[in-house]
Amino acid sequence: MSQSQPKAALRPFLPTDTPMLAAIFVAAIEELTGDDYSEAQQEAWAAVADDEVAFGKKLAGELTLIATVQNSPVGFAALKGNDHIDMLYVHPSVAGQGVGAMLCDALEKLAAARGTKSLSVDASDNASDFFKKRGYVAQRRNSVTINDEWLANTTMQKVLANERTGGAPQ
């Protein structure tokens, strides 16, 4: 008899999550982006989490959701303003198991409930297929500098379905 995977759950970000989320951020970059970015690019990108105080402030300043399995964080996503997915990272041990999709679903629903008509994301090269499968359309290619390294990403956008169904106009 096969054992089923424990079900992931969502909860809001707490400041005490910062060290664990920084570790997830670094592990995701180091283990999941090697086909698209050089080692120097990965190191520069991952170094963003070296200053945990600044990293925690960034997460606290956005609508950040944590995915947990058996109460342990395994991924996180942050909505900047009402219309931009700023971060979406999952630990490599749960990559491809629906954790990222669950986080993205939640951000899309929250954004739609806030009246947002479309959602954008600056998707890394390794994440662009994930977003494309979810209905995001590439708008433009970007080059960004992180810690003196140039990294490419793609701004993608998705038109959100109106969460309100039926009833009188609002």
Rank of each mutant, 00 (worst) to 15 (best):
residue 81 G to K: 02
residue 1 M to A: 15
residue 140 R to I: 07
residue 43 E to L: 10
residue 12 P to Y: 07
residue 116 T to N: 10
residue 128 S to H: 12
residue 62 E to Y: 00
residue 72 S to P: 10
residue 161 A to F: 11
residue 11 R to V: 13
residue 98 G to R: 04
residue 65 L to Q: 02
residue 117 K to P: 14
residue 72 S to E: 15
residue 153 N to K: 00
residue 27 A to G: 06
residue 49 A to R: 06
residue 34 G to P: 01
residue 152 A to R: 10
residue 142 N to Y: 12
residue 97 Q to A: 06
residue 167 G to Y: 13
residue 5 Q to E: 12
residue 26 V to Q: 13
residue 101 A to H: 13
residue 142 N to G: 09
residue 52 E to Y: 09
residue 71 N to Y: 08
residue 119 L to H: 02
residue 20 M to W: 13
residue 103 L to W: 03
residue 160 L to M: 09
residue 16 T to D: 12
residue 17 D to H: 15
residue 159 V to T: 08
residue 147 N to F: 10
residue 151 L to F: 03
residue 50 D to H: 14
residue 101 A to N: 07
residue 46 A to W: 02
residue 33 T to W: 11
residue 71 N to W: 09
residue 84 H to R: 15
residue 97 Q to Y: 03
residue 163 E to V: 04
residue 55 F to V: 02
residue 99 V to E: 01
residue 64 T to H: 00
residue 19 P to L: 04
residue 158 K to P: 04
residue 38 S to I: 05
residue 157 Q to Y: 01
residue 123 A to D: 02
residue 127 A to V: 08
residue 87 M to I: 06
residue 66 I to A: 02
residue 46 A to H: 01
residue 91 H to R: 07
residue 43 E to A: 14
residue 33 T to V: 08
residue 35 D to M: 08
residue 38 S to M: 05
residue 25 F to K: 03
residue 117 K to A: 13
residue 159 V to K: 14
residue 119 L to A: 07
residue 93 S to P: 15
residue 101 A to D: 08
residue 45 W to H: 05
residue 68 T to I: 04
residue 70 Q to C: 05
residue 43 E to N: 13
residue 79 L to N: 00
residue 142 N to K: 11
residue 96 G to D: 11
residue 155 T to C: 01
residue 87 M to D: 03
residue 26 V to G: 04
residue 112 A to Y: 10
residue 127 A to W: 07
residue 17 D to M: 11
residue 105 D to E: 05
residue 105 D to F: 00
residue 137 V to A: 11
residue 125 D to I: 10
residue 117 K to V: 13
residue 67 A to S: 05
residue 40 A to C: 07
residue 169 P to F: 12
residue 98 G to L: 01
residue 65 L to I: 11
residue 28 A to H: 08
